[in-house]
Design a protein around this nucleic acid. Structure first.
Lengths: 238, 238
DNA sequence: ACCCGGCCTTGATCGAAATCAACCCGATGC
DNA sequence: GCATCGGGTTGATTTCGATCAAGGCCGGGT
């Protein structure tokens, strides 16, 4: 059985589901669209839905009273939104571009989790991936220089976009920045001026080339990775 | 049925388990102790076990080639260690004090997850809590001043210690710092000198009092919370 | 065509935290 | 007793990124 007409075919929540589970998911889903700039959910709002991004880009962020803002996550198509078992959103969720979300009614979805081990295991995997990403971010925010932060961000974006199409990455790569300089700053714990300066510096040093404001080419991806300050391999031996 | 002789009674992994599941956990568990300062697991090491902290304090950290270090988590009794479904540890795990761990053989534990919805749901909950903690940390690292970072750290430590004994928190609170100034610095993305200076500053301002190096009293916990830069309530309305 | 506003870049200056350096204190060993 | 050592504090100076400020680019509306 297919996953109905859901464009992402429930990849996010249900890559291993059985027919009956897919049936159930089909029954409780709805689609909703949000315009660029629209706030999907304010921190503290009651969450009535969980779901996944079908198209577009959204951000998770926290804001302090005085306006200082920290992005907590970047949501691309297939990413999951919301936390089962929690009544209110701990973060602001904002549509950066026009966004379509495939939503599941929260109560029903939670009931489904109770009875479907496949869904809860998949959810556990996804949550652990997010945890790893958040922890990688901790190193970036806590210990990296502005230049290293920018390089790390570009590398992460490049990998996320390219993994959707190619597998490995080498040589020259081209990708699009999904967000403005200001949003990058909020992501990296910098100001937009510093982001701009470091982008210019990387350009001057030939690490990246810009085509318009959003399209980035790294003629030598390895050189970009060098600038991140991470281990050469980034993976584990043996 | 009781959880056997496990001092923490599997609270971490199995607060809602059935007898048969507890039985199974009992069969695959072993205890292991580590001396203060000992590295329990290096980043990249093969993980043969998962488990939870029974006593003592351990840290999760990542280190860059040039020695810059970022702590990624602080493990206190009842915290879970390891990630099912992953072969190698992504972080260094280090015993800060003498530590006892209740370990489960990884393969067997993973098999148990497949068949036991209670365990995987509990694991999902714990992972989501860790994710929330990591995201709270992102705001601290990305946007807070040194003083706010220290105050936030103290407030978090106080809450974690006191929640084990009392429920709510108000008025004067006293608690112990589980780690050195240097480790605090690695946690907060600061240097140890800055940590020391800010601790002194908070002391001079009467926000905290020190008794020896490790024992901290906040005469007015609300005043300490004020210094964190967070919202007054910290929670959600309604 | 024009203006306007959002987004970005670049320059000058400032300030918070890093760095470099000296010293303190308590525990441990001889 | 004294030396030593790890952990902590405090001071002087430097530096990186924030802040303040001006101007450029581009697309959309009229």
């Amino acid at each position: 059985m297919e996953c109905g007409d859901c464009p992402i075919r429930y990849r996010a929540v249900c890559s291993r589901c059985e027919d009956s589970e897919l049936d159930m998911l089909n029954r409780i889903k709805t689609y909703e669209t949000y315009a660029a700039g629209e706030t999907i959910l304010w921190a503290g709002d009651r969450m009535r839905f969980l779901g996944s991004i079908v198209s577009g880009v959204a951000t998770l962020s926290q804001t302090m009273e005085d306006g200082r803002r920290q992005m907590i996550g970047l949501l691309l198509p297939s990413d999951f939104v919301g936390r089962p078992g929690r009544a209110n959103s701990p973060y602001d969720v904002t549509a950066v571009s026009d966004v379509m979300v495939c939503r599941f009614a929260k109560t029903e979805f939670e009931a489904l989790i109770e009875t479907s081990p496949a869904i809860s295991r998949r959810l556990l995997e996804m949550t652990m991936d997010e945890l790893d990403a958040a922890r990688e971010w901790l190193l970036i925010l806590g210990r990296k220089t502005a230049r290293e932060k920018i390089a790390s961000f570009l590398a992460i974006i490049a990998r996320r976009q390219l993994s959707l199409t190619h597998g490995g990455v080498a040589g020259a790569v081209t990708f699009d920045l999904p967000i403005t300089r200001e949003a990058m700053a909020d992501y990296l714990g910098l100001t937009l001026e510093t982001v701009s300066r470091q982008m210019s510096a990387l350009k001057k040093d030939g690490i990246i080339a810009l085509e318009g404001l959003r399209r980035v080419t790294a003629p030598d991806f390895a050189a970009l990775l060098d600038e991140t300050g991470d281990d050469a391999d980034g993976g584990m031996p043996a």
